[in-house]
Amino acid sequence: MLAHLGDSPDRAGDGYEELRLMLVKFFEWRDSWFPEEDADETLDRVVRKLDEGKEDIQNLTAYCFGVARLVHLEHLRAPERRRVQLEDVPPLSAPEHFPAEDEHEEQRLNCFRTCLQSLPSQTRELVVTYYQDEKRTRIDHRKNLAQELGISPEALRRRVKLARDKLEKCVRKCLRRLT
C-alpha cells in the first residue's frame, strides 16, 4: 500500500497519514460516532485487497473512498455490531467530583498548553500564528504567512490542518486522562 502512496518511505508515510485523515473526516461528516475506527477498518480492507492482488487499483484515494462508503453503509445497516452487552462493559466508578465549567476550562487550557508545547517549535509557531488572526484580517494575514514560508496558500492550509489534527488528538487524550 505504501508503494501506492509515495516513492520514498517518508512520502509514503505522509501520504498514509493524509489518506487516513481524509477517511476520518469522511466518516465524521457522515456523522459516524467512531470515525477513526471506521477509517482504520477501511484501510485494513484496502490493504487486504492489495495483498490479494486481485484488483488493479489505479487511484488509491478514489478506491479508498469507495471502500469507505461501503463501510459506512454497512454500519448504518447493522448498528448493533457496535453494541455490547452491559455485562461485557468493564465496571467504571463514578467520578467523585464533577468539575465545574470554570475548572473544566482550566483543564482544557492546561491540556492545550501542554500539547502545544509538545509540538516541534516550527509547527507550534505555525499553528498559533495561523489562528492568531482568526478574528482579524485573516485572508491577507494567511497570504503573507504563506509568502513568508515560501509556500502556496494551499500548502499552508494543508500543513496547518495536519498540525491542528495532531494537536487535537493530543488534547483529546489529555482530557480523557483527566476525566
Binding site: E28, E125, T129, L167, R172
Partner: peptide
C-alpha cells in the same frame, strides 16, 4: 467525536482570546 472537536476548539480559542489583549499572542501561550 464531533463534541470532542468542539472541546478542542474551546481550548484553542480560549487560549488565543485570553491573550487577545497582548499583541504577541502566539508567543505568550507557552
Amino acid at each position: 467525536a464531533r463534541r470532542q472537536r468542539v472541546e478542542f476548539a474551546r481550548a484553542l480559542t480560549s487560549a488565543l482570546d485570553r491573550q487577545s489583549d497582548t499583541p504577541v499572542t502566539a508567543n505568550t501561550l507557552t
